[in-house]
Design a protein around this nucleic acid. Sequence first.
RNA 1: GCGCCCGUAGCUCAGUUGGAUAGAGCACGAGCCUUCUAAGCUUGGGGUCGCAGGUUCGAAUCCUGCCGGGCGCGCCA
Length: 576
Amino acid sequence: MTTLYASFADRIGAILDDLQASGALPAGLDRRNVAIEPPRDPAHGDLATNAAMVLAKPAGTNPRALAELIVPKLAALPEIASAEVAGPGFINVRLTEQSWRDELAGILASGGDYGRSAAGRGTRVNVEYVSANPTGPMHMGHCRGAVVGDALAALLEFAGYAVTREYYVNDAGAQVQTLARSAHLRYREALGETVEIPEGFYPGDYLIPIGQALAAEFGNAYVGKPESEWLDLFREKTVAAMMDMIRADLALLGIAHDVFASEAAVQKAGKVDAALDRLRGEGLVYEGTLEPPKGELPDDWEPTEMTLFKATAFGDDSDRPVRKSDGGLTYFGTDLAYHAQKAETADMLIDIWGADHAGTVKRIKAAVQALTAGKVAFDVKLVQMVRLLRGGEPVKMSKRSGSFVTLADVVREVGKDVVRFTMLTRKADAQMDFDFAKVVEASKDNPVFYVQYAHARGRSLHRRAAEAGIDLAPAADLSLLDAEELALVKLAAQFPRIVEGAAQAHEPHRIAFYLYDLAAMFHALWNRGNDDPARRFLLSDKPEITRARLALSDAIGQIIRNGLGVMGVTAAEEMQ
RNA sequence: GCGCCCGUAGCUCAGUUGGAUAGAGCACGAGCCUUCUAAGCUUGGGGUCGCAGGUUCGAAUCCUGCCGGGCGCGCCA
């Protein structure tokens, strides 16, 4: 269905067309800045447009005069109760109560599709997120990016984009070689040797079963043999096992990627040379030396020739090496080719990165621009660190011993829904505290609980109505709803535009904040029943009113389910 | 030294991509409720949107310069 706001945009557009046809307005006005919005102050009505203010100057008139031309045409529309000029030239519109009742009926009729949008027009967007190194289990450092990326993917899908969820497996660098060597130690251990894990190796216990599996598969075939005989094999086997473990961890959060792209495969397929050759042909890749870094000069600085990408041509501060002076690829060199690969099948790329990689955003943006001639939109979303607390005290973590807070532990303790919702209660680039005590608290301070509670209240209404013997089959008479109840419908009706705005801005946290506001207003309405029993949702002796109020409650519940669905959170049937 | 992110109520944060008198929760003040329509409700005080300019009908939002905080800074991943 078209949203209320979109349909009014059409109507304003038609009115402007009329005014242009009749010569009251010049042709060819740029209408891109014309907005239809709910005013912040409800006293200003249900909808407001700035059309007169934006168009007055190019039309050679003044805002109020132009508004006076538009208002009568608006007021003539059947669903409009009043339209008036206000302030510097805003046009404030009040809709009839009937249009809000229609909107409520529309929410219920649309069900799980309410808020779904075609705004994305099927644009193919590739969202790459998590992409944790396959050297161990997922820990809490990965968690926020995982949730933000997954929710963003779902949000874009809901808003009409064709989404691919992708994970980039860094299986080619020095770290996975260290992993393979660490696994080889565990393999020897499994065969009876007493081993010590040297500094710089991966010490975690999770490699013990890998070593046992390798021992079971290969016996002692690779004991005392040079690395050249086993390193690649052990790397592949161990990375595969790590990825199984990571997939299992992600599954706990309800995350499943469509594509796992291998760094080694990108190199093996010759994509790096292809991309670099192409750029070399355009003069964007060359052999050269870098300027020394500004500020303190490292003691051992000496200019060396290597292969560089001309990132400065696209606004970066320095050109960036794609091949080291020894001819080996840099991480960036392969990453550049990997983005070219993604761009082959997408109109838009989104990367979710930890904020500690902020320094490399410019070069990869430069690369994508160079590789796609600016035709593929590209956004890097930086996700800030999460501080883990328990009752206000920082959770101690020791990296050295290899013991860190794993994602699996946290999900086990507080549950998937709490983790996901909490990760979306801040915008991604703001730091966040995750307090084990607070996120499970049953109080208004905890948005997770508050939203779930609103939904559960609505569900319990049905159970209680059944107990009270109320027949819910007949259609609800929505004319029985009062002004306060319709005010809740007005907030509910904003869900579609919240979805579109959040999708366009790549900000899934907006859904969480909106749901909190919606829940708060629903609770306030519910609480009226404490002071005045006649205003309760459930009145056992008044089935007509109960049916109308249940329709309202159902609509709110539907939107909460739809919103939580985008966030990957299950709506609670009841609070325990 | 350079670059990126940030600076909004005492605290934690929103702010509909430039809209009207800048909001919420916590905390604080006052009143109410003692309830399974439960895990609270109503209400009040509280602001130089870091500072100073600029852009325009209009700026927390965009531009420039300062101040303050975080992160990053030759071939690492």
